[in-house]
Amino acid sequence: MAGHHQLNFKVLRNTLFALLSLTILTVLVAKPVSGFDAGMFNFVIAMGIASLKAGLVLAYFMQLKDDNKLYLGLMISCVFFLLLFFGLSFIDIISRAPVDSTL
């Protein structure tokens, strides 16, 4: 259709391989599989890989990289509001008085 970008097979194939590779990496850095343990950074590593995979899907499979920037803006605003929700909720959770507080 007019206005749509041509799908480049090589780019899609490479993206697929990148996603599969990152999935394997996710499994490899999991403690029960490989014994790899980064302590409190386990979560950060897992979420970092997942975010990278999500970014690849958005950029290449959903074609946000080359599409109208409005759609990219809408996507970013959704992520912003999600982070806002998490951020403000966590401010509450981490700064609450302990249950046994006399406050």
Binding site: F81, L84, F85, L88, I91, D92, I93, S95, R96, A97
Partner: peptide, 22 residues
């Protein structure tokens, strides 16, 4: 409107810091 929901929760047990921000 997305920044303000915690004003419904001032007496819910929400932290004072969150209450002041909201």
């Amino acid at each position: 409107s997305f920044f303000v929901w915690g004003h419904h929760m001032f007496v819910s047990g929400q932290s004072e810091l969150a209450g002041v921000i909201f």
